[in-house]
Design a protein around this nucleic acid. Structure first.
Lengths: 153, 153
DNA sequence: CATAGTGAGTTCCTTAAGGGAACGCGCATA
DNA sequence: TATGCGCGTTCCCTTAAGGAACTCACTATG
């Protein structure tokens, strides 16, 4: 398929999708987040094709989300690690988890639970306003054109 | 391409991706969220192919994220609207915006600003713990197997 | 009444991306 | 010298995305 380039759109959603919008990318990110950092491990646990995995890893490294680093030099071996940019991107995964748990988990319940270090409780993420701290959802905001505008009226 | 089925994985991220992981789906959602609810409008503002748009809309309606409703019966005309499930999915968009604004907006600054109804200020979303209210990011949690487990050790 | 127009898709063709298996390369151990 | 492992790359096949043209049901205009 010939893919439209999202990276050039004046929209932070499109630009974010340009980085991790490809199928598999979020799952690759998830696995590296949970400690599965090597090529073959990723390939086997995800069931992704080696070709696509190689492409995605290179893409994510080029965008600055992942870092490829040597963990052995005698037999040259590499692993992938999250950069600060990549670590913050994992927030997106937590929100996906929250929505998937809520709407798609069904009878069985959530496959994974999250314990918050600060309070020690099993919980999930909530979206709040960075200014007032109250809940902030899509229905609680007005959109205004920003400095980098061009899109949207 | 033959696509691996994410919907059957015991992972809420994969299951969420099964719903909106296709390229364009989040942008379709965004546009409907901001009030662009008709086929031709969506097609023109996104620059998406009509074929793919029709597929995506049908998919999202089938999954329960969107609702197709008639706004005129004499010339039969339809528009698309967010269901409660779809509205909550927009939270994901807010988090994408946050990350894109932070890491990809560059010199120009964010293309769109968000004003929070509750406080009237321009702000952005923050992830907090649903139990204690403190910040909750990917680095602030431990993962434990949940009732719907099968995946992850 | 005939023509043009509109909203919402559908059909058809071309191109490129995903899946999968096989191969390559550098090195270590037997 | 042979086997094996980690990490990819190459090749071929199938399928999905892009894009333009076409359909269909109706409305408005001349």
């Amino acid at each position: 398929m010939q893919r439209t380039d999202f990276g050039e759109m004046a929209c932070s959603i499109a630009r974010t999708l340009d980085v991790i919008g490809e199928p598999w990318s979020p799952l690759v990110l998830r696995n590296i987040y949970i400690g599965i950092t090597r090529f073959d491990q990723l390939q086997q646990t995800l069931g992704i094709s080696r070709k696509v995995l190689a492409e995605r890893l290179k893409w994510l490294v080029d965008r600055g989300v992942l870092e490829r680093r040597e963990y052995s030099s005698r037999p040259p071996r590499h692993e992938y690690a999250l950069t600060p940019m990549g670590t913050e991107l994992c927030d997106l995964l937590l929100v996906m988890v929250r929505w998937g748990d809520r709407w798609l988990a069904g009878e069985a319940g959530p496959p994974v639970l999250y314990r918050h270090h600060a309070c020690g409780q099993i919980s999930h993420v909530e979206l709040t306003c960075s200014v007032c701290g109250e809940p902030m959802h899509a229905t609680d905001v007005d959109l205004l054109p920003g400095p980098g505008s061009a899109d949207i009226a």
